[in-house]
Write a protein that binds this DNA or RNA. Structure first.
Length: 513
RNA sequence: GGCCCGUUCGUCUAGGGGUUAGGACGCAGGAUUUUCAUUCCUGAAACACGGGUUCGAUUCCCGUACGGGCUGCCA
C-alpha cells in the first residue's frame, strides 16, 4: 500500500487558532500512525489579509506542540515550494487549462457590479444572489459574450476572474470518512471564482492543484469546508484527476464554552482563557492574546486535551502520550458533533501531566522561569521544590507565583490565622522554639519535627496552637507543602530569621483587630 | 431564506434493537492528610420531541424542534 500523505494548510492571517492546532494534530497523528508524511503548506493567496509574522508563529506553535512537519517551508521536501504565493505560475497554467477545456470561463463583472446585483436582489426580496448556472448568461463573461467581444476585452487588459463552470443537473457526492456519503445538487452550486483579478488563485483552485501535485492522499480539515467540497470534486473531475482524488474527512468544530457558535479569539479575552497555543502580539491590544504556553501549560497536556475534543480511543484511558495517541488514533473514532471547549478539563489534564513529570524535569522547566524572576536557585533546590509543590499546582506559572516564598521573604501574613492563633502571652514560648531550632544538629524534616513536637509538649501546647504559627511565620499562608520539608529546604538560618520577623508582624496584626 | 452537517449526564464522551445506559471533567458528601493539595470512596446528573418499523427502540426510518457550518475576487 502506498504511503499516505497529509497536509496541514493554514493561512497566515494571524495567530494559529487552537482549532487549527487540533486539525494539525489529527493530520499528524494519522500520518505517523500509517508511517506517512505530514506536510505543512502555507496558503498565502490573500494579499489583503496577509499578516507578517503569522507564518513564523505557525511554525513555532507546531514546534512547541511537537508536530514537526516532514515537508514544508524550511523543512525540505521535493514537492515544493510549499508557499502558495510561490506557485502562482502553476495555478495560472491550470486555470487556463480549465478555460481551454470548457470547464471554466472568464468573468468580467467588477466587484462593484456584483455588489450592486446582490443589493438589488435583496431589495426585491429575493434570496441571496448566487452566481450560478441559472444566471451566468445574464452576466458579463465568456459564456454570455461572443468570442470577439471577449477577445477585445482581453486585449484591452480588462480585469477578469476565472470562474468554474458548474455543470447542470448533476449530483455530486462526497464520500466523507466521518460523515459517509453527502450529496449536493450541482444546480445549487455557484460558479466559484478560481482565479482572482489580481492573478492569484482562490483557495479552491490552489487547494486542488496543490493537493494533486503534492500527492495528498487524505484531506483532513474543519467541517466548514464540507459545503465547498462539492466544488472541489468538480475540479478533480474537470482536471481528470478523479483517479487520485484524496479521501476527505471533515472534523467537527470546536464550540464556545458557553452560548452559541464556534470558539473565537474573543472568547479568550472575555473568559480569561487561552485559545491560542502561543501568545500573539497583534497591532492592537484587542488583537493580542495570551497563549497556552505562557499560561503555564505543558504542550503534551494541550495535545492530550485537544485530541479528546472530537475524538476518543474507544477505551476508558484518558492520559495519552503523543506516541500513545499515534498508536490509538483512527478516523473511525472521530465524532460528528461539535465539541465545546472545556477549560476545566484542560486544567485537569495539565495538572495530571505536572504530577506525572519527574522532579528533575520539572526543575529544568522551572529554572529559566525562575531566573527570569530573578530567583537564583540551583537545580538541587528546584528539584526538591518541584517535588514539594507539584501536587498543588495547575500550571507551571503557579509554582513561582503561589509558592514565591521559597524564593523571597514573606510578603504578607494570613490575617485570619494571625488573629485566631497568635497569642501575645505565648511569645516567649515561640522565641524559645527558635532557640531550640537553632540547636537542631541535623537540619532535616524528621528532626525538625521532633524538635517542634518536644518543645510543644514541654510547653503544654497542642499541634493546633503551634503549627499554624510556624507555617504562617515561614510561608505567610496556610496553604503549602509539608511544613517540616519546607523548613528543611529553606534552611535553618532562613527559617529562624523568618520566624523572628513573623512574631512582630503577627503581634501587630493581632493588636490591630 | 437556501443548501449541508449534527443532537446520550452542565461539559467531553462510550455504547448500541432487550444494559442497573459506562467513564472522565466539574459539582456535592465522606475518608486520609492537624494546612492546602494529592489520593481513595460515595452521590446527584443524560439517550431533544413526535410518528413509524419491531415482540421490543436510546439504538433503524421519517418528520419536527434545536444547534452548527456554508451561502465573498476570505480561507
Amino acid at each position: 500500500m502506498e504511503k499516505i500523505r497529509v497536509r496541514f494548510a493554514p493561512s497566515p492571517t494571524g495567530a494559529l487558532h487552537i482549532g487549527g492546532v487540533r486539525t494539525a494534530l489529527y493530520n499528524y497523528l494519522l500520518a505517523k500512525k500509517l508511517g506517512g508524511t505530514f506536510i505543512l503548506r502555507i496558503e498565502d493567496t490573500d494579499q489583503m489579509r496577509y499578516v507578517p509574522g503569522a507564518e513564523d508563529y505557525i511554525i513555532e506553535a507546531l514546534a512547541w506542540c511537537g508536530l514537526t512537519p516532514d515537508e514544508g517551508p524550511g523543512f525540505g521536501g521535493d514537492h515544493g515550494p510549499y508557499r502558495q504565493s510561490e506557485r502562482k505560475a502553476l495555478y495560472q497554467k491550470f486555470a487556463q487549462q480549465l478555460v481551454d477545456t470548457g470547464h471554466a470561463y472568464y468573468a468580467f463583472d467588477t466587484p462593484e457590479e456584483l455588489d450592486a446585483k446582490r443589493q438589488s436582489e435583496k431589495e426585491k426580496g429575493n434570496h441571496t444572489f448566487k452566481y450560478d448556472s441559472k444566471v451566468r448568461h445574464e452576466m458579463r463573461n465568456s459564456e454570455s459574450l461572443d468570442a470577439t467581444a471577449v477577445k477585445t476585452l482581453l486585449d484591452n487588459n480588462t480585469p477578469y476572474t476565472i470562474r468554474l463552470k458548474v455543470p447542470i443537473n448533476e449530483v455530486v457526492t462526497v464520500h466523507d470518512q466521518i460523515r459517509g456519503a453527502v450529496s449536493f445538487q450541482s444546480n445549487e452550486l455557484d460558479d466559484k471564482i478560481l482565479m482572482k483579478a489580481d492573478g492569484m488563485p482562490t483557495y479552491h483552485l490552489a487547494n486542488i492543484v496543490d493537493d494533486h501535485h503534492m500527492e495528498i492522499t487524505h484531506v483532513i480539515r474543519g467541517e466548514e469546508w464540507l459545503p465547498s467540497t462539492a466544488h472541489h470534486i468538480l475540479l478533480y473531475q474537470a482536471f481528470g484527476w478523479e483517479g487520485t482524488m484524496p479521501q476527505f474527512a471533515h472534523l467537527p468544530l470546536i464550540l464556545k464554552p458557553h452560548g452559541n457558535g464556534k470558539l473565537s479569539k474573543r472568547d479568550g479575552a472575555k473568559l480569561g482563557i487561552p485559545v491560542f497555543p502561543l501568545s500573539w502580539k497583534g497591532a492592537t491590544p484587542e488583537d493580542s492574546f495570551e497563549g497556552f504556553r505562557e499560561f503555564g501549560f505543558d504542550p503534551n497536556a494541550v495535545i492530550n486535551f485537544l485530541a479528546f475534543l472530537g475524538w476518543n480511543p474507544g477505551t476508558e484511558q484518558e492520559m495519552f502520550s503523543k506516541e500513545e495517541l499515534v498508536a490509538a488514533f483512527s478516523i473511525e473514532n472521530i465524532g460528528k458533533a461539535g465539541a465545546r471547549f472545556d477549560f476545566d478539563k484542560a486544567k485537569w489534564f495539565n495538572q495530571q501531566y505536572i504530577i506525572a513529570t519527574p522532579n528533575e524535569e520539572l526543575a529544568a522547566i522551572l529554572q529559566p522561569m525562575a531566573r527570569a524572576k530573578g530567583y537564583d536557585k540551583d537545580m538541587a533546590f528546584l528539584t526538591t521544590f518541584a517535588g514539594l509543590m507539584k501536587e498543588r499546582v495547575l500550571f507551571y506559572t503557579d509554582f513561582l507565583e503561589t509558592a514565591y516564598y521559597f524564593f523571597e521573604p514573606v510578603k504578607a501574613y494570613d490575617q485570619k490565622t494571625a488573629r485566631k492563633k497568635w497569642k501575645s502571652e505565648r511569645r516567649p514560648f515561640f522565641e524559645a522554639l527558635c532557640t531550640k531550632l537553632e540547636g537542631v544538629a541535623n537540619w532535616v524534616g524528621p528532626d525538625i519535627k521532633e524538635a517542634i513536637v518536644s518543645h510543644m509538649e514541654e510547653g503544654g501546647l497542642k499541634f493546633g496552637d503551634v503549627l499554624p504559627i510556624v507555617r504562617v511565620g515561614v510561608c505567610g499562608t496556610m496553604k503549602g507543602p509539608d511544613i517540616f520539608e519546607t523548613m528543611q529546604l529553606l534552611g535553618k538560618q532562613e527559617v529562624v530569621q523568618r520566624l523572628h520577623l513573623a512574631f512582630d508582624a503577627l503581634e501587630a496584626i493581632a493588636q490591630a483587630k
